[in-house]
Amino acid sequence: MAIPDLVPLVEALVFAAEKPLDAAQLADILEAEQMNIIQALDELAEFYDRHPRGIFLHQVAGGFQLRTRPEYADFLRKLGRRRPFRFSRAAMESLAIIAYRQPITRPEIEYLRGVDSGSVLKTLMEKHLVRILGKKDVPGKPMIYGTTSEFLELFGLADLASLPTLQEFSELTEDAGVDGMSPSHLAASSEESDLVGSDGFSSEH
């Protein structure tokens, strides 16, 4: 059982914090045992799960953050706080390759994609989603790249281990009736492969 006062305290801190807070930081601030903090976080997460609230406790980038529920996205977007953007497919491809294969060099990315990735890589670095981890100790000393904690925050991932599982094998039995490569075509193919749950919440538990 968590210390009763700890749950609302933890809630207040997570609510007011600018960035995701982890249990160690909370324990520091509250001068409490980390174990009790974890219990309080568990209890808080459970509370948000059980009661129909607009926000939930999301484990992200190694910490915890209160976020609005994805199913309310359409309404929240009307607040217009942020201009919606979409990643190009080239950017998403490169980002996925870096996320799953890091640390990785640019030639390795380009071999996997079969195409020059310099400008895409630059954009991802500018958006702080990818960073240089260092140099690889091979001839030429190529830079090695990896993802940032901003990447985890953007995609709501607790850590790299909570990336959607890579589909090792997937038969190319696509419905052949689809003409061209329209966005709807992409959506259809991903529904079939069923890589993420429809709510995308699975990483939370």
């Binding site: 706080r81 998403m92 980002l95 996925a96 995609f155």
Partner: peptide, 21 residues
């Protein structure tokens, strides 16, 4: 494999797009 992973990743609810802090 990575093309599908990219689609799956893109479907994750994104901060300031689908979920807001």
């Amino acid at each position: 494999k990575y093309k599908e992973a990219a689609v799956a990743l893109d479907e994750q609810p994104k901060l300031n797009q689908d979920v807001f802090s």
